[in-house]
Design a protein around this nucleic acid. Sequence first.
DNA 1: GCCATCGTTTCACTCTATGCAACGCGTTGT
DNA 2: ACAACGCGTTGCATAGAGTGAAACGATGGC
Lengths: 285, 285
Amino acid sequence: MASQLSPGVKIPIKRVAKGPRPRKAYSSRLLDRSILLLKFLAQGPVEKRLSDFSEAGLHKSTALRLLDALRRHRFVAVDEVTGRYRLGLGLFELGLAAVSRLDVGQFAPPFLDALVAESGETASLGILEGTDVVYILRSECAQPLRLPQSTGRSAPAYCTGIGKAILAHMEPDRLETYLADVTLLSRTPRTLTDREALRQDLRRVRARGWSLDDEEIFAGLRCVAAPIFDLEGRVVAGVSVAGPTNRMPKDSLPLVASKVVATANQISRRLGHPGRAGKASPSAN
Amino acid sequence: MASQLSPGVKIPIKRVAKGPRPRKAYSSRLLDRSILLLKFLAQGPVEKRLSDFSEAGLHKSTALRLLDALRRHRFVAVDEVTGRYRLGLGLFELGLAAVSRLDVGQFAPPFLDALVAESGETASLGILEGTDVVYILRSECAQPLRLPQSTGRSAPAYCTGIGKAILAHMEPDRLETYLADVTLLSRTPRTLTDREALRQDLRRVRARGWSLDDEEIFAGLRCVAAPIFDLEGRVVAGVSVAGPTNRMPKDSLPLVASKVVATANQISRRLGHPGRAGKASPSAN
DNA sequence: GCCATCGTTTCACTCTATGCAACGCGTTGT
DNA sequence: ACAACGCGTTGCATAGAGTGAAACGATGGC
C-alpha cells in the first residue's frame, strides 16, 4: 500500500545502499560446518553413515553431535531401520517459506498455469541471485516429454532464457559489472561464450521485449522468456516457456513469445509496475 | 519460549541421566539460535531489521554476526535497497533437495496430475513425520476455489485424510504408542477427539482401504486419502483428493476413493510394493 | 541545533565446541 | 572359536570460538 503520511508531494526514495552494510566479514565455524554437512547430504547417495562425513572433512564425533543437533530441528532425519542420515523435511518447510514470502511466489502460480494452458508447454518463473538464476515456480505441461526437474535449482544467467531476460533489462552499470565478473562457459555448442555476442543478444532482447535460449544450456531445449518488473521498474524476475525444439519450431516463437510477454506483464502489474505505457518518458519520475 | 536464549541467562547443560537410554542428547547453542533466527524470519513481516531480532531473544550484535554468516550461505538475503533481512533461497534449494531425494518425491508428480485430471479436485501427497503429516507434493485443480497453500506445511495426523490413512496401516504397537502420546485437539466440531472413536475410525479405514476426513481439520473441507506402501510393505506416505464439501458430496465419495486408491496403488507399485495381489505373500504373519 | 534510533565495531571473558582416545558392540575373517 | 576390524558412542581437557556490554558513527526526526 502507498504511504501517504504527509500531504507533501515528495516521494521518499530511500537510498541506504551506500550506508550501513557489514564491512567486516563475520563467519562461524560451527555454522559453516553444519551447512557443509547439509550440502554434503544433498549430494551423492541419499543416505549416509556417520563415518561417511569424514569425506566432508568432519571428525566423526563432530559429525555425530552436529547431526544430532540438526535432527532435533528436523533439518536431518534418521532412518528408523538403517539408522542412516538424510536431509530432513524441516528444511523443506523453511525453504518453501522462503519462496512463499517472496511477493512473486504468492500469486504467480495461477498465471503460470494459464500460460501453460495457452502454450501447451512447461512454464517457469525464476529470479536472479548473484550471477545465477534460481527457479522458484513451475507449472508442468501435460506432454509426455518432461523437462528435468528444475525447481529449486539454479543455472548461470547468461545461457538461460529467464537469465537473459533479466540481464537485458537491468541497469547498464550493473550489467557491466556482471559481464566483467562472469566466466562464459560453453554448455552446448550454441552457448554464447563471447562477451560481445552476448551483449549484442541482450540489446536485441531488450528491444523486442523477450529473450530466446536456443539450445544454449541444454541441447534440444528451446526457451522463450520475458522480464518481470517491480513497483520501481526494476527487473526482479522472469517467466519462461520451454520445450523440446521439435515442439518449439522457430516460426512459432513470436506467437509463444507474445503470450509469455503478456503473462510477464500481468505479473508485473500485480507487483505494482505501471506497465509498458510508462516507457515513453525517458526520465520519468 | 525464547527467554532461554536471552543474553545473560545461563543455560544449564542438560545431561541425560545414565539410564537405559543408549543415546545422549547433543545440542548446540549457536545452531539453536541460528535456526531460531531462521524460523523467526519465517514469521510475521517478510522483512526484518536487525533490531527486530531482539524479539526473538537475540542480542543485536549476535544477530548481526549470525545473519552475516547465514547470508554467505544464502540462507538469508539482504534487500539491496532497504538493507533488511529475509529468508534466502539457499534454504529453498536445500529444502527441495530434501524432497527430491525421497524416492516418492521423484516420480509421484505425474500420478498426482493424472488424479487431478480424473477427479477434478486438488491432489496431495504427504508423509508422516513424528506425529504430523508433512505435505510434500501437490497438484492443483483448475477450479476457482483453491485450498490454502499446504505444500511444506504440516498438520496433525489424526485429523487429516492422509494422516489417518497412514495411521490405519501402521504397525499396531506403533499406533498404540502414537495414541498414547498424542493430544487430540478439536480443530472443528467434527474432529475426532475421543481416542476410542479414532481407533474405531482407523479400523474402518483399514478395512475399506481409504480414509475420510469429513471437515475434521477445516470446516467446509472434505478429503479422501489412501496409503502408499514401500518395498517392505510399510506405509510411508499417503495420497489425497480434497475439495469443498459442496463439490465432494457424500454419495460421490466411493467413486473418488476408488480413484485415489488406484493412484496410491500405482505409486506403491513403483516403490516396489507387490500390491494387493501379493497379499498372500509367503512370510505373511 | 539536539536527541533518538539503528547498525557496526572493539574488547575481555566465559563456556562452547572440538579432537583425541577409549569403550561397546556387532561383523568379518582366519 | 577367537581375533581383528569397523562403526557409533562417550569422557575429558583444552583452545579458542562465540558472547554481551559498551562505545562509536551515521541517519533521521523534531
